[in-house]
Design a protein around this nucleic acid. Structure first.
Length: 191
DNA sequence: CGTATTTGACCTGCGC
DNA sequence: GCGCAGGTCAAATACG
């Protein structure tokens, strides 16, 4: 793939999986803090124009990442033209897709609280893994970010999360947390 | 009753 | 060309 570079300034508790070897055998040594430290890390991350960050390493998959704008997907979806069948789907492996990046965390929980609201829209059993892969979409109306969550079968304490796209809205939880602070600043700025 | 999750069906791309 | 694996949809169900 065309020179994708994993971000290197990640905090210790995060690490982006290499795209072609998404699931290296050595486990991450640190625990994900309950706090949203890594959310802010995301905000600082350059978009990872990653290629196939297939977290499971299921060989045949060739999900390609790209630097295409997020709404490219939406367009294609709507322009689809002829009405989709009852149970549609299947727009996999589009050539120009959004930035993708994956990382692994050590956690007993599959759902990592990253401050955004996610809606689950699917779950699939994947090959070479005893754990299913869960598919989530950002619950924000205008946001088209997706993520996949899967637990490694060879290291059950490790959860692989693959993000696709970039949020086009602020993190609610972060804003909530900041709200009192902002109010205080506003108040103080009057003087 | 509204919202989120579950789940089976369907679609697409890729490898053989 | 066929089958497989992965990704998505939407009806059904669960939950508050």
């Amino acid at each position: 793939m065309e020179g994708r570079e994993p971000p290197q300034d990640l905090p210790d508790h995060l690490f982006v999986s290499s795209s072609d070897h998404p699931a290296p055998s050595e486990p991450s040594s640190s625990q994900l803090p309950r706090d949203l430290d890594w959310v802010s890390s995301f905000l600082q991350l350059p978009p990872y124009h990653g290629g196939s960050n297939d977290a499971t390493g299921a060989g045949s998959s060739s999900l390609v990442g790209g630097g295409a704008p997020v709404n490219a997907d939406e367009e294609e979806r709507n322009v689809g033209g002829k009405e989709r069948r009852k149970a549609g789907g299947g727009h996999r492996t589009r050539k120009a897709t959004r930035p993708r990046f994956a990382f692994r965390t050590r956690s007993s929980e599959d759902i990592l609280d990253d401050g955004y609201r996610w809606r689950k829209y699917g779950q699939k059993a994947v090959k070479n893994s005893i754990y299913p892969r869960s598919y989530y979409r950002c619950a924000h109306h205008t946001c088209n970010v997706k993520k996949q969550v899967q637990r490694l079968s060879e290291d059950t304490s490790t959860v692989v999360t693959t993000y696709e796209g970039v949020h086009n809205h602020p993190c609610e939880q972060l804003m909530e947390a900041l709200a009192p602070l902002l109010r205080q600043i506003q108040f103080l700025s009057k003087f």
